[in-house]
């Protein structure tokens, strides 16, 4: 049973003359971790907005096809009703801050207040989310006095605390330090193991490769491929779509090392290590 089904989705922003999304069709099961990749302007954020219902209900424009979350057709429900089910971490954390809240704590509780959750549970969820993103010590700080990465952590914590069934993350770790980024990926993977469906937009292909169950390539609004990371990054035409394979894949491709079982190039450090270490031993 699919959690999300996207069928021949087409979309044009108002006052533009091109399709930002042009015939996207895929489905994802509950708990799947889906990576979305493609060059700047290819339509990744627009697709995120379409899953969250902001396209078309907030942005308007012309829309065709459909997006289903369970048995709900996204364009037929209020954005505010859908956000209980689908949470979004926007591309630019600087835009996510409401600006109306005085502290980090209030900022994170903002989304929860509208959900009608008992006070006690609210407090517990906020504390957990802040702990997870390592920002507990800033809870009384004004959000605008945080560093860039701390602000991004707050944006992620706000969504995680709401415990939606689907989480859409649009380049959520672009300003995190390397270990913080890894921790966020592990935390998100844990959520997906609990059954939460994840959509992750990311330009860091090593992370996409090691965490995604399936990867969607978009180019110029069109769906190019939807497959496992191994299959995706073994393609010969990634250049055309402005995508660089993970460092491990590039190395193994140049050295002609495919995984004999799958016929694909390795995409993670562990896979590459297993294939290459035999070589080193022979030298």
């Amino acid at each position: 049973m699919s959690k999300i089904v996207v069928e021949n989705l087409k979309y044009k922003y108002p006052a533009t003359d091109f399709l930002a999304l042009d015939g996207i069709s895929f489905s994802a099961k509950a708990g799947e971790f889906i990576g979305i990749i493609g060059k700047n302007g290819s339509g990744k954020s627009t697709l995120c907005q379409a899953i969250a219902g902001l396209v078309p209900n907030f942005y308007k424009g012309s829309y065709g096809g459909k997006v289903m979350v369970d048995d709900i057709e996204v364009k037929n429900v209020d954005i505010s009703d859908l956000c209980e089910k689908v949470g979004t971490v926007f591309q630019n954390p600087f835009n996510q801050v409401t600006g109306s809240k005085l502290t980090v704590y209030e900022e994170i509780s903002f989304g929860l207040e509208n959900l009608g959750i008992p006070k006690e549970e609210m407090i517990q969820r906020i504390d957990e989310a802040m702990e997870l993103l390592d920002i507990t010590k800033y809870k009384d700080r004004n959000p605008f006095d945080l560093s860039g990465g701390q602000m991004q952590r707050m944006a992620i914590a706000s969504i995680i605390a709401m415990q939606p069934e689907v989480i859409v993350l649009d380049e959520p770790t672009s300003q995190l330090d390397p270990q913080g980024r890894e921790e966020v990926y592990q935390a998100v993977q844990k959520l997906s193991k609990k059954g939460i469906t994840i959509f992750m937009v990311e330009h860091n292909m090593e992370k996409i490769a090691s965490y995604s169950d399936r990867v969607l390539i978009i180019d110029d609004g069109k769906q190019i491929a939807y497959d496992t990371p191994q299959k995706i990054f073994s393609r010969d035409d990634l250049d055309e779509y402005g995508i660089e394979a993970p460092a491990f894949t590039k190395i193994c491709r140049e050295l002609g090392k495919k995984n004999p079982v799958t016929g694909c190039y390795p995409v993670t450090l562990e896979e590459a290590n297993d294939l290459l270490k035999k070589d080193k031993g022979e030298m």
Binding site: Q179, P246, L269, A272, K280
Partner: peptide, 23 residues
């Protein structure tokens, strides 16, 4: 809270003494 570059990590786990910076 930092990491080595990806290729540096791989070469380290393969047991190379050299530090490689790029693929």
């Amino acid at each position: 809270y930092l990491e080595q570059p990806n290729v540096t990590k791989l070469c380290q786990s393969l047991g190379y003494d050299e530090v490689f910076l790029t693929t």
